[in-house]
Simulated assay, not measured.
Amino acid sequence: MKKFIAETMGTAILVLFGCGAAVIAGADGTTGIGLAGISLAFGLAIVAAAYGLGAISGAHLNPAVSLGALMAGRMPAAEFVSYVIAQILGAVIGALLLYLIASGSAGWTGGLGQNGYGAGYMGEYSLTSALVFEFVMTFIFVTVILGATQPGAATAFAGLAIGLTLAAIHLVGIKVTGVSVNPARSIGPALFAGGAALSQLWVFIAAPLLGGALAGIVHKAGLTRAD
Score class of each variant (00 low, 15 high):
Ala161Gln: 11
Met122Ala: 15
Leu131Lys: 09
Glu134His: 10
Trp202Pro: 03
Ala153Phe: 02
Thr165Trp: 08
Ser186Trp: 09
Gly147Asn: 14
Gly194Arg: 08
Tyr125Thr: 01
Pro208Tyr: 12
Ala161Val: 14
Gly178Thr: 12
His170Gly: 13
Pro189Lys: 12
Leu191Ser: 12
Tyr117Arg: 02
Thr165Ser: 15
Asn182Glu: 03
Ile169Arg: 01
Asn115His: 10
Val172Lys: 00
Phe139Tyr: 10
Ala197Cys: 08
Val176Ile: 15
Leu201Phe: 04
Val132Ala: 15
Ser129Leu: 02
Ile187Asn: 05
Leu201Cys: 07
Gln150Asp: 12
Phe133Cys: 13
Ala119Lys: 11
Ile162Gly: 08
Leu198Ala: 08
Ala161Lys: 12
Thr138Glu: 07
Gly147Val: 03
Ala119Glu: 15
Leu198Val: 09
Val172Glu: 07
Met137His: 06
Leu127Pro: 02
Leu146Lys: 04
Ile140Thr: 10
Gly159His: 10
Ala154Ser: 12
Gly194Gln: 09
Ser199Asp: 13
Leu191Pro: 06
Thr143Gly: 10
Thr165Ala: 15
Val136Ala: 14
Ala196Gly: 05
Leu131Ser: 09
Ile174Pro: 01
His170Ser: 04
Gly163Trp: 07
Tyr117Cys: 02
Gln150Gly: 01
Leu160Asn: 07
Gly152Pro: 07
Gly118Leu: 11
Gly116Lys: 03
Val144His: 07
Gln200Ile: 05
Val203Ile: 01
Leu166Phe: 14
Thr149Val: 07
Ser129Phe: 04
Gly159Ala: 05
Gly152His: 05
Phe157His: 11
Phe135Met: 04
Val142Cys: 04
Ala156Cys: 00
Leu160Tyr: 10
Ala193Thr: 15
Gly194Asp: 07
Val176Phe: 09
Ile145Pro: 04
Val144Trp: 14
Asn182Thr: 00
Ala168Lys: 06
Thr165Arg: 09
Ile145His: 08
Tyr121His: 15
Thr155Arg: 15
